[in-house]
Simulated scan of single mutants.
Amino acid sequence: MKEKSISQHAFQAGIKSYVFKTADPEELVYAVRQVASGKRYLCPKLSDQLMRRICGWQTDQSVKVTNIEFSKRELDVPRLIADSYTNDQAADKLFTSRCTVDGHRNP
């Protein structure tokens, strides 16, 4: 069985929407409206990635990366964010700077 992705953990933790930071303003507004009306929203790029993962599809002949190792800190930041910590609060809890948290949150 495949290991769960960060987005899967985030949805299981209760988030209502997932939008990549590269989303255009219209998509962001749409996502906010969906959540405000009680619905969930998953951006198309992540939806595509999840479908490929579930079905084992690949779009090109590139090497499939598996068993990626994350440091404890790389996992601490998304966990705190899933627990509704702001970047500043996560930085305080981890005894690090907000810039470090931003870097782990937005690779």
Rank of each mutant, 00 (worst) to 15 (best):
K2M: 12
E3W: 00
E3S: 13
S5Q: 07
S5P: 00
Q8N: 06
H9N: 04
A10L: 09
A10K: 03
F11C: 01
Q12I: 01
A13V: 00
A13R: 06
G14P: 03
G14M: 01
I15F: 06
I15G: 00
S17W: 01
S17T: 00
Y18M: 06
F20Q: 01
K21D: 02
K21R: 02
D24I: 00
D24R: 09
E26G: 02
E27R: 04
E27T: 09
L28K: 13
L28T: 08
L28R: 10
V29Q: 09
A31D: 02
A31L: 14
A31T: 08
V32I: 14
V32T: 08
V32K: 05
V35L: 02
A36V: 13
R40I: 04
L42R: 10
L42V: 15
C43W: 05
P44H: 12
P44W: 11
P44A: 14
K45D: 07
L46H: 12
D48S: 15
L50R: 10
L50H: 02
R52E: 08
R52L: 06
R52Y: 04
R53H: 03
R53Y: 00
I54T: 02
C55I: 02
W57F: 13
W57T: 13
W57A: 12
T59W: 07
T59I: 14
T59E: 14
D60M: 03
D60Y: 06
D60K: 12
Q61A: 09
K64Y: 06
K64S: 11
V65E: 03
V65L: 08
T66H: 01
T66S: 10
T66W: 03
E69N: 05
E69V: 15
F70N: 11
K72M: 04
K72D: 08
R73V: 10
R73Y: 11
R73C: 03
R73I: 10
E74K: 10
E74N: 09
L75R: 15
L75H: 09
D76T: 03
V77L: 11
V77W: 08
P78W: 11
P78S: 08
P78N: 05
R79V: 06
R79N: 07
L80D: 00
L80V: 09
I81R: 05
I81L: 14
S84Y: 12
Y85T: 00
Y85R: 04
T86A: 05
T86V: 06
N87M: 14
D88A: 15
Q89G: 07
Q89N: 08
A90F: 10
A91S: 11
D92S: 14
K93V: 06
K93N: 04
L94D: 07
F95K: 09
T96S: 09
R98T: 11
R98M: 08
C99F: 12
C99D: 13
T100D: 05
V101G: 03
G103C: 07
G103V: 05
R105F: 07
R105Y: 08
N106W: 08
N106C: 09
